[in-house]
Amino acid sequence: MEVRRVCAGYGRGRKYRRILTDVDFCLYKGEILGLVGESGCGKSTLSKTILGFVPVESGQVIHHTSRPQMVFQDPFSSLNPGKKVGWILEEPLRMQKIPAAARREKAEAMLAKVGLDKSFLNRRPGDLSGGQRQRVSIAISLIQGSRLILADEPVSALDVTIQRQIMELMLALQEELGLSYLFISHDLDVIYQMCDRVMVMQKGQVVEEGDVERIFEEPRHPYTRSLLAASLSYRL
């Protein structure tokens, strides 16, 4: 996927506020690209722009593979509370007019991939824990065969032990299916553990971009340095 000098924002006419300025990057096949920044820096707007929820003002987003899918931050609002997990998982397949038996089979297989057994098909999101919901969200993002996943703070709302499980699941799925992730997080340590490359974003602009080790060991931009200095890292 390529994002070419994209500017985007909200509002119409005079009320238009530009959020993203000249964002320009590539996400390669099989790569995990981290995106880090503080609240209001435009991380979420960027993912919405890539998905087409926010119109581009200038520049363009080029998808070389199928349309990307998304894993959301809040596992409590990203699943329809009124439907069963099976129904939700089957919905995209229903849109593709796949027959019922095949749908069910595929949904079951996908649940198994994310570590949930088929009894979850008949449960509602309200009966699931945060970690289980996030597993379902991942299953939904993969069921249409998309290989590019935007993950917007996918582990931020979870307890640390669950966080770790979801991170490991995402990494295992990446290797198995050759996925690419745009992994958005405010937690530098999570980014360090998960990503190959990282972009640092401030006020709608990417201020620094590079391999994870390089960014963490020798940050060049002052903002990156201040972020690293402020973040608490666990020391033995």
């Binding site: 929820f53 959301f72 931050q73 809040d74 990203s78 919905e91 849109m95």
Partner: peptide, 12 residues
């Protein structure tokens, strides 16, 4: 809510 965005991404 995110579930509506999720449905959009499903092509609904």
């Amino acid at each position: 809510m995110d579930y509506v965005k999720s449905a959009r991404l499903m092509g609904v």
